[in-house]
Amino acid sequence: MDMSAVRAAIADAARAVVLPAGIARLTATGYVPDAVTPPCFFTADYTIDFDKAMGRALDEVELTCQVLVGIADDRAAQRTLDSLLAGSGPSSLKAAIEAARGAPGDYALGGLAHDLHVMRVQGYRWYEHQGTTYLGAELVVKIIGEG
């Protein structure tokens, strides 16, 4: 798998979320940004388990993504983050990312991977990025594809 292309495709899929009125559009990027414009989604670190099938036929990736929101109003920040972390709905990152799986029988991410699944949310807490504090969380995405 071309991880740079996979990361960019995950960010493209995340941009499909629709946030409630009055909340800025989600910024999404396939790399860790120098500066954050909240709300912001980005792909971060990943692990690869090579050779899950013989002959380099399958690798398995766990991609950790982060979502950060501004904290001008702590309750509003938590409501925004909760909507992004929901399992379904127009603001759900899980739903937006998993929509990139394609139709049954199709490859995910426009052919970049065999399949993907948003496995879990973790690390719901305060994050510091370039000296600024944000409320955020991590999403772990499992991706399988050719080695």
Rank of each mutant, 00 (worst) to 15 (best):
A11N: 02
T133C: 00
A14N: 04
R79D: 15
G102W: 13
A57F: 00
T80H: 09
D106N: 13
T133F: 06
H129P: 05
G131A: 10
R15T: 14
G111W: 05
A53R: 11
A21P: 08
R120E: 13
V141P: 03
E60T: 12
P33T: 12
Y107W: 09
P38Y: 05
A76M: 08
A103H: 08
G123P: 02
G55E: 07
D34Y: 09
L116I: 11
L112N: 02
T133W: 09
L112Q: 04
T132Y: 00
R101N: 15
L116K: 03
M54K: 04
D74T: 14
Y107S: 04
I10V: 15
A14G: 01
R7M: 10
T80L: 11
A77K: 09
H117I: 08
L135F: 05
A108V: 08
G30W: 01
A95F: 01
V67C: 08
S91L: 05
R7Y: 00
I23N: 07
R120F: 02
F41C: 03
I143S: 00
I71Y: 04
G136A: 05
A28I: 05
P20F: 10
K52R: 15
G123H: 14
L85D: 14
T29R: 08
F42A: 02
Y31F: 15
E138K: 15
L19M: 14
E60M: 07
L84E: 03
A113F: 02
A96W: 01
A24S: 13
K52L: 13
A35Y: 10
L63P: 02
A14F: 07
V69T: 09
G30F: 00
F41H: 05
A28Y: 02
H129Q: 12
L58I: 01
S92N: 06
A76R: 12
I23Q: 12
D45A: 07
Y107V: 00
D12T: 14
T80A: 15
Y124L: 11
A86K: 01
D45N: 10
G147Q: 11
P39Y: 05
A103W: 08
A57K: 13
Y134W: 01
E62Y: 04
A57W: 01
Q122F: 00
V69D: 07
C40N: 07
A5Y: 01
D106Q: 13
P104R: 11
R79K: 12
T37M: 07
L139Q: 03
M54S: 11
V69F: 04
E62D: 15
V61T: 13
I23D: 07
W126N: 07
F50E: 09
Q66E: 12
T29M: 10
A95S: 13
P104H: 09
K52D: 14
Y124M: 05
W126E: 07
S4K: 08
A11W: 00
E146C: 01
D51I: 03
K94Q: 14
H117V: 06
L109V: 06
V67T: 11
G55Y: 04
L135M: 11
A53I: 05
E146H: 08
